[in-house]
Design a protein around this nucleic acid. Sequence first.
DNA 1: CCTGCCCCATA
DNA 2: GTATGGGGCAGGA
Length: 984
Amino acid sequence: MIAPMPNQSTAPALTPNDHLILVDGSTFIFRAYHALPPLTRKPDGLPVGAVSGFCNMLWKMIQQGPTKEPGDEATHFAVIFDKSGDTFRNEIYPDYKGHRPDAPEDLIPQFGLIREATRAFGVPALEQQGYEADDLIATYARQAAACGARVTIVSGDKDLMQLVNERIGMVDTMKNKLIGPEEVFEKFGVTPDKVVEVQSLAGDSVDNVPGVPGIGLKTAALLINEFGTLETLLEQADTIKQKKRRENLIEFADQARISKQLVQLKEDVPVEVPLEDLSIVDVDGPSALGFLKAMGFTTLTRKVAEITATDAEAIEPADVPIVGWEPATPSEDIPADKLGATGGNDGNTAWTPSALVEAKKAEITSISIDSSAYEMISDATSLKAWIEEIHEIGHVAVDTETSALNAMQADLVGVSLATRPGKACYIPLAHVEGEGDLLGGGDLVPGQLQMAEALEILKPMLEDPAILKIAQNMKYDWLVLSRYGIEMTPFDDTMLLSYVLDAGVGGNGMDELAERWLDHTPIPFKEVCGSGRNMITFDKVPLDKATAYAAEDADVTLRLWHILKPRLAAEGLAHVYERLERPMVDTLARMERRGVSVDRQMLSRLSGDFAQSAAAVESEIFELAGENFNIGSPKQLGEILFGKMGLPGGKKTKTGAWSTSASVLEDLAAQGHELPTKIVEWRQLSKLKSTYTDALPNYINPQTNRVHTSFSLAATTTGRLSSSEPNIQNIPIRTEAGRKIRKAFVADKGKKLISADYSQIELRVLAHMADIPQLKKAFAEDLDIHAMTASEMFGVPIEGMDPTVRRQAKAINFGIIYGISAFGLANQLGISRGEAGDYIKTYFKRFPGIQEYMEETKKFVHANGYVETIFGRRAHYPDVNTKNPNMRQFYERAAINAPIQGSAADIIRRAMVRMDAVLQQSHLDAQMLLQVHDELIFELPEDQVDETKKIVISTMEQATEPALTLSVPLKVEAKAANNWDEAH
DNA sequence: CCTGCCCCATA
DNA sequence: GTATGGGGCAGGA
């Protein structure tokens, strides 16, 4: 024990910077086999579904590490398999794992293939006679941890949780969940070092570990926490108060000791392959491709070829040995095309598992949706029965019905709940007799629970950390209930699930999702409340009708959740949902609830000013035109300009009308015509008046005296937010007149506004993603990026640069972000398409990495139908392969732009999700109010300005950490003032 | 009264 | 050239 092992050198095998990933082969096989639809190889029908899933998982694990976070990749890697045959445990206890059913027939030949696959990828495939995979994993993990290295065990086997500590983590690919000491404690009720003791008491029916009868996980944890170890407990068993428990502990003491030997992993297996030999080498392209081609996995073949820079065409399929399977003699009456894999399913459907979804969909839709079958709840006893069932199930779909569409003004009218498909109820709370008007009515409909009483019953459940609340557009329900003192947690949102999975595929509204996934048309809102003039509020809807409508919504939401949630892990998008999407729900809800102060008097004065100026311009226009007409009508205006006055009409709109857009009018103005100038001036004034100074005051909430916008999380394809009612993301800033409107966004008395915005975030993201040395250097040195571009392109010095040259470079930089075209650039700069094309050529010559990025992105979107941001968010372009060249190029430009715009959106989301907690920790009272894509606006006590600025800037600049460190710095500028204009 | 179109505000 | 939301007009219900 004391003498060092003879073959152990003094230098540790691994260093603290190393990361060892140990994959439990059985877990991967089990997951790949059961989670995926069966798949067979063409043309011989060899079952390869599990092999395909395994290869995909292995490849992803090698490329991205367990969390997909960059920097999480392994330096050392192995897949550990169970060797067939008995182990030392069967000698101790012959029945160990005696209940194991035989492997399914179509899995048998795949065991060998999976080992082949592992080796083909250049990864050690380890197994050792007499030991289970877990023992090998334990041995390697302890050895590596002893060197100070980090270890990640990839397995779904809870027996391995005994190994977890601060160096050794686990990841369960089934649940896509990281397991550390905390999670282990959650599961076993004890710290990882006591897991074995608990398991020896509780036993395990799956592995046929006997344990002590009558003692389960909970009791075992209780006892171990009290006595410390199994041995102490067994020795002092006679002191146990409970009679039966005492007797069992005494009688089955030896059985418990045997169990411990079964459960305790062997951490000193004399391993045949030394730890240092697990160090990872780059995937051997030809070897991996040979195997993949032999299996017929075309999509993965392409991916691997791309990443390993290997020409797949040149690789011959490997000669893979197949054990345990014989091809069936093709029968005459089975057409050839029915043999083997179905079209398009090459195994990579593992990650877009349409067949799996179909199965889930079939299961959920097999229970019919009958809106007349829902329960209406009108007494506390029935409600409590539902709550009880919810606690048994652990989740519930929730939908609130309200008296308005705007969450800030909506009063609660009722709540619906769904516990399983087809089982839903509605709790009416504030329905009133219809026709409530001056003549009477408006009284509460009888037979409803008291609002206060119902909420008192619901609140503990809605805030219970053990109950998952599910809603479609949770932000709405969260906001409404928060105004009744209920802050729901934890929750899922089916709208956001759909958005993360399918952004760009279609809408994410409930009606659309119900059609897409459930082949069902929910009762239209119009049918219940009417529309337009005759629309009634939901509190006027009769109870029976309301129950059918409201409960159906909860039912549909729950069904959608059952179908969409499993896709998240299967498609590798759990991280995006959990870190960038779901936490935004309450972050945004709080911002919306806070609102922003808007100076009504100032807007009203401005409105008058704009009206006066517009009237003055209007009479000039009529004078010049020689007649009165509606300037706001593009049609009438076109007739005046291009018909009556005979000006050279430039462009036509797509419906064939004359275009009177600002750019056309400015062209005419440049030719010396006065009227178009006046038109542009008039348009600006009337736009500012109607859209801003007139409309904004109507959004001031009478209760709070503030304006509460609504942010939409799922409106854009790229991941940006949108804002509406009112849209605060398009408040003017560019013109002097427009900026006056910004001045009306003010801080309350004693407070200031801070505006903090990212400088050039999209160009920085691009510099990082496309890896452009000159751009990265310029950002690192905080240079003027447009001047640098101009200097690089035209060879002029930055000092004393002609502003026109810089302007052109700036336009090109923006053009790049937008997926540049000569046509667009020419329009922007007012130059010919030829000249614009030359500029682009020059640019690409100077920055070849950008052109490469663009070409790669186009290739990617054509092959996959989507593109990804740096945090893995996907934007789908299902129609990108259209034959229409204009459309196709449009989608290509959008696909080039989406990762840039979307990554920037991800970054600010990360900052926002963290911001409230960071401010709180710093004991600052600043409140985040608004987001405008690259800018955050806060309101705060004026004596906290300096400290808040510091915290805000650092939180925003560090937003990618620790998940990702960009190769360029992020820069944030922040300013405080009494109003938004001066703060910007 | 609803819808599509045009135009325009922002990043 | 990317991404939005919204106002006013005009035509068809």
